[in-house]
């Protein structure tokens, strides 16, 4: 990755658990969608095997692509706890780098859903006064997420900036 989206520093990546969990999620969702698609095609074409076969190939290749892709996307994710700001980078084709000064944080949220709880994962979201900041770090280990939250809150309180 180039210097634009990854300035020097101690970058933290998401762990293998995050990659595996996202791959499994993606696989499950895409398989469900594929089955739906195949049933739809079956009904629409009155069971024409040629069409159903073509749809199956398309669905299988899409699913494979998505499963590989989501893993790479999660690996592209990184964050850096700087001295005064948090940097978050992600993206494969559309890369982005978000910088949030600690002083601008209003709160930090840790959320976890039923599926990610199975993996012992949680998302950390930084809330600033701007709803467009969208600073989310997905799929951290729950303990890491809690630690990060407390750390960020402590830094934010120390460096608070006026709204």
């Amino acid at each position: 990755m180039d210097a634009l989206f990854q300035p020097d520093g101690d970058w933290q990546r998401l762990g293998d658990v995050a990659v595996v969990s996202h791959r499994v999620n993606s696989l499950a969702l895409n398989l469900l969608a594929s089955i739906g698609l195949l049933v739809g095609v079956w009904i629409l074409t009155n069971g024409d095997l040629l069409w159903v076969g073509a749809a199956a190939v398309a669905a299988a290749s899409w699913t494979t692509w998505r499963v590989i892709r989501i893993g790479r996307w999660i690996r592209s994710f990184g964050f850096r706890e700087g001295e005064r700001d948090l940097l978050i980078t992600h993206g494969l084709w559309y890369k982005s780098l978000t910088a949030i000064p600690y002083g601008r944080m209003l709160s930090v949220e840790v959320t976890t859903g039923p599926v990610s709880r199975l993996w012992g994962l949680a998302d950390v979201q930084l809330i600033t006064a701007s709803h467009r900041s969208n600073a989310q770090i997905p799929a951290l280990r729950a303990t890491d997420a809690a630690r990060l939250r407390d750390h960020l809150i402590a830094l934010g309180e120390k460096q608070a900036l006026p709204l």
Binding site: F5, S96, L97, A99, S130, S133
Partner: peptide, 11 residues
Amino acid sequence: ARVQSIRIDQG
């Protein structure tokens, strides 16, 4: 003083 965060994007 009003900037809450900055994002760099590249397609």
